[in-house]
Design a binder for these strands. Structure first.
Lengths: 335, 335
DNA sequence: TTGAAAGCGTTACCAT
DNA sequence: ATGGTAACGCTTTCAA
């Protein structure tokens, strides 16, 4: 493998000059630049990442921590991960993939051994034990989600409270007054993944503000969970005309069971989902939904990490405004 | 940050001794080892990854290339990725995540800059352009899949041909004679992802051997695709009693449409799926299926990469035997 | 605009 | 069983 010294010799310049041609950190005459670049091409020179990291204290690698437990949201996580990788590449960075199950130890390992310049952490819980650990690292980190005490750490996410409000306003605008929320599984609430609570809060507020009759109900995974959930809703809020579903996994069985029960969407009951666009589109009826913009959030996370690395300033919490997209699962309630 | 020299000084030994304590590459007296370990703990020493890579020509990082196009199989890919990360960690390696869309350039970039020790490549196509590039790298690589000319590169995968045979034997054992295969989307065949063809080949062979009446039909994504596919099957092979579904995405709509048409599973028609276990279980009826063992394949890929790095010998092609799991979607055909 | 040379923190070879 | 010390390949300060 050719080294920077080989290149320097071939181009008749000093190694530092080659380095500067590569980094652009100081002016180089057009002549020399060309000679150097020719030598680089001819020798097939590629800088050694380890040597660079050692000399510059920069790895050009980002750590991305994904939840391993194949919870509810595999496709979202995957979308997110690819978004992060793609965005990182536009900033000349690579991505080291860590799983959440390594916990604090994993973060400390890659940070202390200087494998990465910054960390991006998904699936953050309300009182996530990893947060105090992240604070202690010399590398900056960006969280996806919103822990109870985000002090000193930058967070990005979809504004789930606003999403809930938007959803209710949309349904109320169509004339709905009795609306039920099918929430994530109890496990999600228990785990304290804050998006669930933020959505709930927005839902409650807007419901009060608009004077709606609403209720909320978590939904266990699987067909039975959905069955129970629907039964409870009918018992507690009879004559409900619209369902807000913030539970990707429940979406399918829920639609199935509505159909089986002879309740047509949207003729008999309207449905608004909170999920990625493609999930909404993959349903038997294209669902009106608030999109979860994994791609944007991922891009924003990387963008933010880059700012931190450059010492540029950043908002500490950045919540993306939701967009509700009308499709075919919403209609005015029947008279 | 403490360096190995700091540790050496604190422990009253030479830096090389500290290094050897860490690597275990030469015998160390219990005494010294303890003193060194104490010093390491006290100073919170963590070896610098870049420095290590520079001195040892080993990064302890594996590259994993995943398809970015959110094709059919997002959950499988995710399962696979987490399996690779988990397995890599047990060998003290980390995983750098690359996306397929970077193509050959991405592979060369991480390999030439010595960011990784080996590469694991998913979603390999029959005449994948990346393969000649991989051959030229000094790092070894392991493919998931089976290209047309795997010469010089190690491949691991599920034995899809055997999976097809197993499936047909199972159905024939139940007394089925007229069986249709619902295959992947035409796009998959076009792309030349070899697993589709291997399954097809096994299906044809075993069908002939058992003297069955079979047909095969690719299946476009979406509800319409499934509808068309089912209609074609009924036209071409009337009285079909069993369906083999090698198309995760089609599974749901297919079951829906059978039910809508009043054909009950398994009373009226048996269904065997080829998909990950959890997908089979998530269906309204737990499906008899040949599991796609992402976890095992991922683990095997890493294991194989480690062998190559250690200079241990390896089979060039390793196809995992399929397991068919009986669940509730298979029964003898109606009289 | 360019060069020289001192690190960066390990490893591994050569000694003892 | 342990120590000394060249590498490893690059960046960056200091000089010119």
């Amino acid at each position: 493998m050719a080294t920077i010294n080989d290149v320097a010799r071939a181009a008749g310049v000093s190694p530092s000059t080659v380095s500067y041609v590569l980094s652009g950190r100081r002016p180089i005459s057009a002549q020399t630049r060309e000679r150097v670049q020719a030598a680089i091409a001819e020798l097939g020179f590629h800088p050694h990442a380890g040597a660079r990291a050692l000399a510059s204290s920069r790895t050009n690698v980002l750590a991305l921590v994904v939840p391993l437990r194949v919870d509810v949201n595999v496709p979202v996580i995957m979308q997110f991960a690819t978004a992060v990788v793609t965005a990182a590449r536009t900033h000349n960075h690579d991505v080291l993939l860590l799983t959440k199950d390594e916990g604090t130890a994993g973060l400390e390992r890659v940070a202390h051994s200087t494998m990465v310049d910054a960390l991006i952490v998904m699936d953050v819980e309300k009182d996530d034990l990893r947060i105090p650990a992240l604070r202690r690292l010399k590398q900056p980190s960006v969280l996806i989600g919103l822990p109870a005490d985000p002090d000193g750490i930058v967070c990005v996410d979809l504004d789930f409270a606003a999403a809930a409000r938007e959803t209710l306003r949309h349904l109320a605008g169509h004339g709905h007054r009795r609306i039920a929320l099918v929430g994530p599984s109890p496990a999600v609430y228990r785990r304290g993944t804050s998006y669930a609570e933020r959505f709930l809060a927005g839902f409650a507020e807007e419901s009060a503000e608009l004077g709606l009759e609403t209720m909320t109900h978590p939904c266990e995974p699987g067909h039975d969970g959905v069955r129970t959930c629907l039964a409870d809703i009918d018992a507690e809020l009879p004559g409900v005309t619209a369902l807000v579903v913030h539970n990707e996994e429940a979406l399918r069985p829920l639609l199935d069971q509505l159909r089986t029960a002879g309740r047509r969407v949207p003729a008999d009951v309207s449905v608004v989902a909170v999920c990625p666009r493609d999930v909404a589109l993959a349903m038997p009826i294209p669902l009106t939904s608030v999109d979860i913009p994994s791609h944007d959030v991922g891009g924003l996370a990387v963008e933010t990490a880059m700012k931190l690395l450059d010492g540029r300033s950043t908002e500490q919490i950045r919540l993306l405004p939701p967009t509700l997209v009308e499709r075919e699962s919403c209609a005015p309630p029947r008279e």
